[in-house]
Design a protein around this nucleic acid. Sequence first.
DNA 1: TTTT
DNA 2: TTTT
Lengths: 142, 142, 142, 142
Amino acid sequence: MMNRVILVGRLTKDPDLRYTPNGVPVATFTLAVNRSFTNQQGEREADFINVVVWRKPAENAANFLKKGSLAGVDGKIQTRSFDGQDGKKVYITEVVAESVQFLEPKGNSNSSPPKDDGNKRVNDDPFANGGTIDIQDDDLPF
Amino acid sequence: MMNRVILVGRLTKDPDLRYTPNGVPVATFTLAVNRSFTNQQGEREADFINVVVWRKPAENAANFLKKGSLAGVDGKIQTRSFDGQDGKKVYITEVVAESVQFLEPKGNSNSSPPKDDGNKRVNDDPFANGGTIDIQDDDLPF
Amino acid sequence: MMNRVILVGRLTKDPDLRYTPNGVPVATFTLAVNRSFTNQQGEREADFINVVVWRKPAENAANFLKKGSLAGVDGKIQTRSFDGQDGKKVYITEVVAESVQFLEPKGNSNSSPPKDDGNKRVNDDPFANGGTIDIQDDDLPF
Amino acid sequence: MMNRVILVGRLTKDPDLRYTPNGVPVATFTLAVNRSFTNQQGEREADFINVVVWRKPAENAANFLKKGSLAGVDGKIQTRSFDGQDGKKVYITEVVAESVQFLEPKGNSNSSPPKDDGNKRVNDDPFANGGTIDIQDDDLPF
DNA sequence: TTTT
DNA sequence: TTTT
């Protein structure tokens, strides 16, 4: 059994950072990954892939990525289901990132600096880890 | 922009082979990929990932894989949407396989032989191609 | 910066398990991965890829894999160099496996049972972990 | 049998473009891929991975990548051997790229424009293909 | 509900 | 023989 996904694309919006009742950080975002070929109308389309990240990489993603950022994701496909509001089961397929890579060049944060929305700052420089936002030993305890 | 998925798992059902109006073969199946860790209840869960294959590999998948077969998939994640019966947009995330690998050992087709449901036979031995079911030059013209 | 390798192939020999001076297990083996295409002479060739595994997965690989076993590897490419006996630098490219997957079907250990060469037994059934031989929390402390 | 490699790193030198006696373009370059962790001395090390590309993507790589460019590679590991000058067999492990991705942002070609060393120009804008440098139908015939 |  |  093997399950591996690698993506490079651009965030369609700022990451959404939340915390579980136990205080575990979870970030979600959507990556737009342009296809390398065009459709019959000659348009280049994209796949819009939902990504979930847990723990410290979640906080790093929230701190260093924003709408339009070029990011790499290494993780797994996960499927889950829940009961929708109309009583029907909803099936979800998403990518759980094990590491998120910040691929924007150093000076290239466009116009605005990385936003600070009040989350505690975990790491001030994504390049301190070679640009990788990885699972760390000192992550929240689970 | 990069988009790559590699999976190894077991088919939950026999592949479903169809043809487009232009005669292009498309097979779909679901791969159950067991996770390497267990949940809080100590149960091992699986991800159920929908896979689409086009052209000759579709026919090969239909001919050589069946419910329970161990298979490898190398492809891309694709997202698409359509309008559901209740007027709401339905969003789909699936894997488009570029190659499908038959991983069952040679003599191990369980009890029954590979089924033959009347599709024209493209290749009588998946091992003739090292077990790979790949896109071929003589695929249908598109 | 991203670095990901996924392989499925067969061991060319039994894994070689050693221990560092600090007692850390390291296993090495070579995977033969048949190519999906043939050369001009119509022969199918293979790539012979050296794989290194550390810690508990190393012991699991040594216990459950042997010459001819079908195995999956998920890891990274690593390069290193050392000074050869003739004073010239030797450059090595190999795969460091983060997880090793035992893909032989359950009853299919060919003729002989998994060998036991005196290594302490860490896990008696690779399927207890869904066939995955993964890095565990109780690995040696580094 | 599966064999897949995905890399993102920086070119250590300009690509080296050559042509076979039959006129088939081949480019080679080395990708420096920084590791996400540091060694015992607290230094971040890198893996230096040799990459080979054939046909049109080779020409595109030569035209759009240079020393220091951030690039993504999707391909396979290949091993081969030849007889060294001292009569001993030399074993090579390298990556054969199926597609090469130009990840430098559009305006960020540093100081100098993409070099033109006299090769016929195949494509003037790597972004015309969404930044992908892919195998095309009109490649040389093999 | 989508990015450059 | 190595990149930012």
